[in-house]
Design a protein around this nucleic acid. Structure first.
Length: 268
DNA sequence: ATGGTTGTACGACAA
């Protein structure tokens, strides 16, 4: 079985590329982030045509997550328990469309779009950290309830856990940029301390291996990217992983998302 | 050339 995650940066703008990619990648499950649409605008026919079931969670032009599967799609869950709202205590607190889960052929798949902290001193940063901590606590509970659970926490984590996960760590530190700060990295490593294993890196070691390249400043041709898309697997799922691929080719050409798809192969 | 983009409520804001 092959499961994948991909921040498509608008599913409607990317519909043709997503369809072509599904066709050639031969993936059984695709966790999608940044659909940037509501259900009424969602390209349901695309997935019908390709014989995938699909579940979507999106209620505005922002965020939006989905899971497509051709090996079953059961017990769909939108948001994780206690998922923080942004602007809590403000006028319009909003629980954003950043997490959806479904069980696909025995694997509990979460499509996650971790909040962007925007700046180290921005109010989105504590939101991001609380969001991750709450998810981690929940995931710990799922494993405590069933240590053999096969859980895939996959998506755009908006964190670069190691210095060589960005093209120039000195620049990030000097400019006080997000994604590489100690609190963000600690929030990421907390999942590993909770016995989840990031299963993409071992098959795709750096330096210079990325999953995202900014549209601006010719980042892709200059090979200046970031490794911020990950698959965190529970121990039982991690033991099934036989390979992982970052599909850098998909970042090429006109009309590409700024993120590459990330595929994980599992034994039966 | 010292900036270079792309997506979304069409236009300011997010990444």
């Amino acid at each position: 079985m092959k499961i994948a995650t991909w921040n498509v940066n608008s599913l409607r703008a990317r519909a043709d590329r997503v369809e072509a990619w599904l066709e050639r990648s031969d993936c059984d499950v695709l966790a999608i982030q940044e659909t940037k649409c509501k259900d009424e605008n969602f390209p349901w026919e695309l997935f019908e045509r390709m014989d995938y079931e699909v579940a979507h969670f999106g209620f505005s032009q922002w965020n939006g997550v989905a899971i497509a599967s051709r090996v079953g799609l059961e017990n769909v869950e939108r948001t994780f328990p206690g998922q923080p709202e942004f602007g809590k205590g403000g006028v319009n607190p909003e629980q954003e469309a950043r997490a959806i889960a479904a069980t696909c052929n025995g694997v509990r798949v979460w499509s996650l779009y971790v909040p962007n902290g925007r700046a180290l001193d921005d109010e989105h940063m504590p939101y991001k950290l609380e969001w991750l901590d709450t998810l981690k606590n929940g995931a710990e509970g799922w494993l405590a309830a069933d240590p053999e659970a096969q859980i895939a926490l996959m998506g755009d984590w908006n964190i670069a856990p190691q210095d060589d996960d960005v093209w120039d760590i000195d620049l990030f530190v000097q400019e006080r940029l997000t994604h590489v700060s100690a609190p963000e990295r600690a929030a990421f490593h907390a999942f590993e301390e909770a016995t989840f294993k990031e299963v993409v890196r071992p098959f795709n070691p750096g330096p210079g291996v990325y999953t995202y390249w900014d549209y601006k400043q010719l980042r892709f041709p200059k090979k200046e990217g970031m490794r911020i898309d990950f698959v965190m697997a529970s121990p039982a799922l991690a033991s099934r992983v036989t390979g992982a691929v970052i599909d850098r080719e998909e970042r090429k050409g006109k009309g590409a998302s700024d993120h590459a798809p990330v595929i994980v192969e599992l034994t039966d």
